[in-house]
Protein backbone atom coordinates (compact mmCIF):
# COMPACT_ATOMS: atom_id res chain seq x y z
CA UNK A 1 0.00 0.00 0.00
CA UNK A 2 1.00 3.61 -0.51
CA UNK A 3 0.09 6.08 2.22
CA UNK A 4 0.09 9.61 0.80
CA UNK A 5 -0.38 11.40 4.11
CA UNK A 6 2.08 10.95 6.96
CA UNK A 7 4.10 13.53 8.86
CA UNK A 8 7.41 13.42 10.70
CA UNK A 9 8.86 15.35 13.62
CA UNK A 10 6.70 16.79 16.41
CA UNK A 11 3.05 17.84 16.37
CA UNK A 12 3.31 21.25 18.06
CA UNK A 13 0.63 20.64 20.66
CA UNK A 14 1.33 17.25 22.22
CA UNK A 15 3.54 14.22 21.85
CA UNK A 16 2.12 11.39 19.74
CA UNK A 17 2.67 7.67 20.27
CA UNK A 18 4.40 7.31 16.88
CA UNK A 19 6.21 10.62 16.50
CA UNK A 20 9.62 8.93 16.46
CA UNK A 21 10.28 7.98 12.85
CA UNK A 22 11.43 4.38 13.47
CA UNK A 23 8.23 3.67 15.42
CA UNK A 24 6.09 5.18 12.68
CA UNK A 25 7.90 3.22 10.00
CA UNK A 26 7.52 0.01 11.97
CA UNK A 27 3.77 0.58 12.34
CA UNK A 28 3.38 1.39 8.66
CA UNK A 29 5.26 -1.77 7.73
CA UNK A 30 3.16 -3.93 10.02
CA UNK A 31 0.08 -2.56 8.26
CA UNK A 32 1.45 -3.47 4.84
CA UNK A 33 2.41 0.05 3.76
CA UNK A 34 5.38 -0.11 1.41
CA UNK A 35 5.68 3.57 0.62
CA UNK A 36 4.56 6.68 2.50
CA UNK A 37 4.72 10.30 1.45
CA UNK A 38 5.99 12.28 4.39
CA UNK A 39 5.74 15.94 5.20
CA UNK A 40 6.92 17.56 8.40
CA UNK A 41 4.91 18.93 11.30
CA UNK A 42 7.67 21.54 11.59
CA UNK A 43 6.36 23.03 8.35
CA UNK A 44 3.32 24.40 10.13
CA UNK A 45 5.03 27.06 12.22
CA UNK A 46 8.72 27.18 11.34
CA UNK A 47 9.99 29.97 9.09
CA UNK A 48 13.34 28.35 8.26
CA UNK A 49 11.70 26.25 5.57
CA UNK A 50 14.96 24.95 4.12
CA UNK A 51 15.93 23.76 7.60
CA UNK A 52 12.63 21.89 7.82
CA UNK A 53 13.02 20.34 4.38
CA UNK A 54 16.65 19.40 4.90
CA UNK A 55 15.84 17.59 8.17
CA UNK A 56 12.85 15.91 6.53
CA UNK A 57 14.96 14.58 3.66
CA UNK A 58 17.69 13.45 6.06
CA UNK A 59 15.19 11.74 8.37
CA UNK A 60 13.64 9.85 5.47
CA UNK A 61 17.11 8.71 4.33
CA UNK A 62 18.30 7.76 7.80
CA UNK A 63 15.21 6.19 9.36
CA UNK A 64 12.83 5.68 6.48
CA UNK A 65 14.02 2.16 5.71
CA UNK A 66 13.30 2.75 2.04
CA UNK A 67 9.66 3.47 2.76
CA UNK A 68 9.42 7.22 3.33
CA UNK A 69 9.27 9.68 0.43
CA UNK A 70 9.81 13.30 1.54
CA UNK A 71 7.59 16.08 0.26
CA UNK A 72 9.05 19.43 1.29
CA UNK A 73 7.20 22.47 2.42
CA UNK A 74 6.86 25.79 0.58
CA UNK A 75 5.41 28.88 2.23
CA UNK A 76 4.72 31.49 -0.46
CA UNK A 77 4.25 34.24 2.10
CA UNK A 78 7.96 34.13 2.95
CA UNK A 79 10.57 36.14 1.03
CA UNK A 80 12.34 34.22 -1.74
CA UNK A 81 10.05 31.21 -1.44
CA UNK A 82 10.79 30.37 -5.07
CA UNK A 83 14.23 29.25 -3.94
CA UNK A 84 12.59 26.66 -1.66
CA UNK A 85 10.76 25.23 -4.67
CA UNK A 86 14.03 25.04 -6.58
CA UNK A 87 15.82 23.33 -3.69
CA UNK A 88 13.02 20.81 -3.19
CA UNK A 89 13.38 19.87 -6.84
CA UNK A 90 17.09 20.22 -7.55
CA UNK A 91 18.82 19.73 -4.20
CA UNK A 92 16.58 17.31 -2.34
CA UNK A 93 15.26 15.62 -5.49
CA UNK A 94 11.75 15.62 -4.10
CA UNK A 95 8.84 14.48 -6.27
CA UNK A 96 6.40 16.84 -4.68
CA UNK A 97 5.69 19.51 -2.12
CA UNK A 98 3.12 19.85 0.66
CA UNK A 99 1.34 23.16 1.29
CA UNK A 100 -0.36 24.41 4.44
CA UNK A 101 -2.24 27.58 3.42
CA UNK A 102 -4.20 27.42 6.69
CA UNK A 103 -1.13 27.73 8.91
CA UNK A 104 0.74 29.99 6.48
CA UNK A 105 -2.08 32.44 6.09
CA UNK A 106 -2.81 32.81 2.38
CA UNK A 107 -5.81 32.17 0.20
CA UNK A 108 -5.95 30.13 -2.97
CA UNK A 109 -6.83 33.14 -5.10
CA UNK A 110 -3.57 34.82 -4.07
CA UNK A 111 -1.20 35.45 -7.02
CA UNK A 112 1.60 33.69 -5.13
CA UNK A 113 -0.38 30.48 -5.14
CA UNK A 114 -0.87 30.68 -8.91
CA UNK A 115 2.84 31.34 -9.36
CA UNK A 116 3.65 28.41 -7.10
CA UNK A 117 1.51 26.10 -9.22
CA UNK A 118 3.28 27.36 -12.33
CA UNK A 119 6.65 26.53 -10.80
CA UNK A 120 5.41 23.12 -9.67
CA UNK A 121 4.28 22.36 -13.22
CA UNK A 122 7.64 23.48 -14.58
CA UNK A 123 9.48 21.13 -12.20
CA UNK A 124 6.87 18.36 -12.52
CA UNK A 125 6.20 18.42 -8.80
CA UNK A 126 3.07 16.93 -7.29
CA UNK A 127 1.38 19.50 -5.06
CA UNK A 128 -0.22 18.23 -1.87
CA UNK A 129 -2.54 20.75 -0.29
CA UNK A 130 -3.50 20.14 3.31
CA UNK A 131 -6.97 21.59 3.85
CA UNK A 132 -6.78 21.25 7.62
CA UNK A 133 -4.74 19.42 10.22
CA UNK A 134 -7.33 18.96 12.95
CA UNK A 135 -10.94 19.64 13.84
CA UNK A 136 -11.31 23.40 14.35
CA UNK A 137 -13.22 22.74 17.56
CA UNK A 138 -10.30 21.06 19.29
CA UNK A 139 -7.52 23.48 18.36
CA UNK A 140 -5.37 25.15 20.97
CA UNK A 141 -7.16 28.32 22.09
CA UNK A 142 -4.22 30.50 21.09
CA UNK A 143 -3.77 28.87 17.68
CA UNK A 144 -7.14 28.95 15.95
CA UNK A 145 -6.55 28.07 12.32
CA UNK A 146 -9.39 28.07 9.81
CA UNK A 147 -9.60 25.35 7.20
CA UNK A 148 -8.49 26.31 3.71
CA UNK A 149 -11.24 27.73 1.51
CA UNK A 150 -10.90 25.65 -1.64
CA UNK A 151 -13.58 27.47 -3.61
CA UNK A 152 -11.05 29.48 -5.73
CA UNK A 153 -9.37 26.26 -6.92
CA UNK A 154 -11.70 25.60 -9.83
CA UNK A 155 -10.78 28.91 -11.45
CA UNK A 156 -7.09 28.58 -10.59
CA UNK A 157 -6.92 25.13 -12.13
CA UNK A 158 -8.48 26.42 -15.34
CA UNK A 159 -5.25 28.35 -15.85
CA UNK A 160 -3.02 25.51 -14.61
CA UNK A 161 -4.37 22.50 -16.39
CA UNK A 162 -1.11 20.55 -16.05
CA UNK A 163 -0.96 20.82 -12.27
CA UNK A 164 -1.14 17.60 -10.29
CA UNK A 165 -2.94 18.36 -7.06
CA UNK A 166 -3.68 16.14 -4.07
CA UNK A 167 -6.04 17.44 -1.41
CA UNK A 168 -5.30 16.05 2.04
CA UNK A 169 -7.73 16.11 4.97
CA UNK A 170 -10.41 17.71 2.83
CA UNK A 171 -13.73 16.00 3.44
CA UNK A 172 -14.75 17.84 6.57
CA UNK A 173 -15.14 21.05 4.58
CA UNK A 174 -15.10 20.06 0.90
CA UNK A 175 -18.31 18.13 0.36
CA UNK A 176 -21.04 17.30 -2.10
CA UNK A 177 -21.07 19.14 -5.39
CA UNK A 178 -18.00 21.17 -4.45
CA UNK A 179 -16.02 17.95 -4.29
CA UNK A 180 -17.32 16.81 -7.65
CA UNK A 181 -16.58 20.18 -9.28
CA UNK A 182 -13.01 20.07 -7.99
CA UNK A 183 -12.45 16.58 -9.34
CA UNK A 184 -13.73 17.74 -12.73
CA UNK A 185 -11.65 20.90 -12.72
CA UNK A 186 -8.30 19.25 -13.25
CA UNK A 187 -5.98 16.49 -12.15
CA UNK A 188 -7.13 16.60 -8.55
CA UNK A 189 -7.08 13.64 -6.15
CA UNK A 190 -8.24 13.27 -2.57
CA UNK A 191 -7.03 11.21 0.35
CA UNK A 192 -9.44 9.44 2.71
CA UNK A 193 -7.97 10.44 6.08
CA UNK A 194 -10.85 12.70 7.10
CA UNK A 195 -13.64 10.91 5.25
CA UNK A 196 -16.32 10.15 7.82
CA UNK A 197 -19.84 8.65 7.88
CA UNK A 198 -20.69 5.00 7.80
CA UNK A 199 -19.46 3.34 4.61
CA UNK A 200 -17.55 6.53 3.91
CA UNK A 201 -15.54 5.51 0.86
CA UNK A 202 -18.66 4.18 -0.85
CA UNK A 203 -20.26 7.57 -0.32
CA UNK A 204 -17.16 9.35 -1.57
CA UNK A 205 -17.25 7.30 -4.77
CA UNK A 206 -20.69 8.69 -5.56
CA UNK A 207 -19.08 12.13 -5.79
CA UNK A 208 -15.62 11.40 -7.14
CA UNK A 209 -14.34 8.63 -9.45
CA UNK A 210 -12.43 6.03 -7.48
CA UNK A 211 -9.36 6.72 -9.61
CA UNK A 212 -9.11 10.05 -7.80
CA UNK A 213 -9.06 8.54 -4.32
CA UNK A 214 -5.88 7.81 -2.42
CA UNK A 215 -5.10 5.94 0.76
CA UNK A 216 -3.93 8.54 3.27
CA UNK A 217 -3.85 8.01 7.01
CA UNK A 218 -2.76 11.34 8.53
CA UNK A 219 -0.55 9.27 10.84
CA UNK A 220 0.86 9.75 13.35
CA UNK A 221 -1.64 12.49 14.30
CA UNK A 222 -4.47 10.05 13.55
CA UNK A 223 -4.37 6.39 14.45
CA UNK A 224 -3.23 4.63 11.26
CA UNK A 225 -5.93 2.01 11.80
CA UNK A 226 -8.64 4.58 11.02
CA UNK A 227 -7.77 4.67 7.32
CA UNK A 228 -7.12 0.92 7.23
CA UNK A 229 -10.52 0.09 8.72
CA UNK A 230 -12.28 2.40 6.24
CA UNK A 231 -11.13 0.01 3.51
CA UNK A 232 -12.91 -2.78 5.39
CA UNK A 233 -16.07 -0.81 6.18
CA UNK A 234 -16.85 0.06 2.57
CA UNK A 235 -17.68 -2.67 0.10
CA UNK A 236 -14.97 -1.91 -2.45
CA UNK A 237 -13.96 -5.15 -4.10
CA UNK A 238 -10.36 -5.97 -4.85
CA UNK A 239 -10.01 -3.89 -8.03
CA UNK A 240 -11.11 -0.62 -6.46
CA UNK A 241 -9.33 -1.36 -3.21
CA UNK A 242 -6.08 -1.86 -5.08
CA UNK A 243 -6.62 1.32 -7.07
CA UNK A 244 -7.13 3.38 -3.92
CA UNK A 245 -4.31 1.81 -1.94
CA UNK A 246 -1.64 1.43 -4.64
CA UNK A 247 -2.32 2.14 -8.27
CA UNK A 248 -3.73 5.66 -8.16
CA UNK A 249 -0.79 6.95 -6.14
CA UNK A 250 1.69 5.09 -8.36
CA UNK A 251 0.15 6.61 -11.45
CA UNK A 252 0.40 10.12 -10.02
CA UNK A 253 4.00 9.60 -9.09
CA UNK A 254 4.93 8.14 -12.46
CA UNK A 255 3.17 10.84 -14.44
CA UNK A 256 5.25 13.45 -12.63
CA UNK A 257 8.62 11.71 -12.80
CA UNK A 258 11.25 13.35 -14.98
Amino acid sequence: MIDVNVSLSRWPFRRLPDDETPRLVARLKRAGVTQAIAGSFDALLHKDVEGVNRRLAQECRTHGDGLLVPFGCVNPTLPDWQEDVRRCHEVHRMRGIRLHPDYHGYTLDAPEFAELLTLAIKHQLIVQLSVMMEDERTQHPLVQVQAVDTSPLVDVLADHADATLVLLNSQRTVRGEALTRLAEAGNVSFDIAMQESVGGIEKLMKLVPHKRLLFGSHAPLFYLESALLKLQESDLGETIRRAITVENASRLSNSNST
Binding site: P17, Q195, E196, S197, V198, G199, G200, F222, Y223, L224, E225, S226, A227, L228, L229, K230, Q232, E233
Partner: peptide
Protein backbone atom coordinates in the same frame (compact mmCIF):
# COMPACT_ATOMS: atom_id res chain seq x y z
CA UNK B 1 -21.56 8.00 16.68
CA UNK B 2 -22.60 6.47 13.35
CA UNK B 3 -24.03 7.38 10.82
CA UNK B 4 -22.31 10.79 10.96
CA UNK B 5 -19.07 9.06 11.90
CA UNK B 6 -17.70 5.77 10.66
CA UNK B 7 -17.22 2.60 12.66
CA UNK B 8 -13.71 2.60 11.22
CA UNK B 9 -12.39 5.88 12.59
CA UNK B 10 -13.88 5.29 15.99
CA UNK B 11 -12.85 1.65 16.37
CA UNK B 12 -9.33 2.73 15.44
CA UNK B 13 -9.02 4.63 18.71
CA UNK B 14 -9.20 1.29 20.49
CA UNK B 15 -7.61 -1.11 18.03
CA UNK B 16 -4.77 1.27 17.19
CA UNK B 17 -3.90 2.30 20.72
CA UNK B 18 -0.88 1.08 22.64
Amino acid sequence: DIGGRSFASQLAKVTGAD
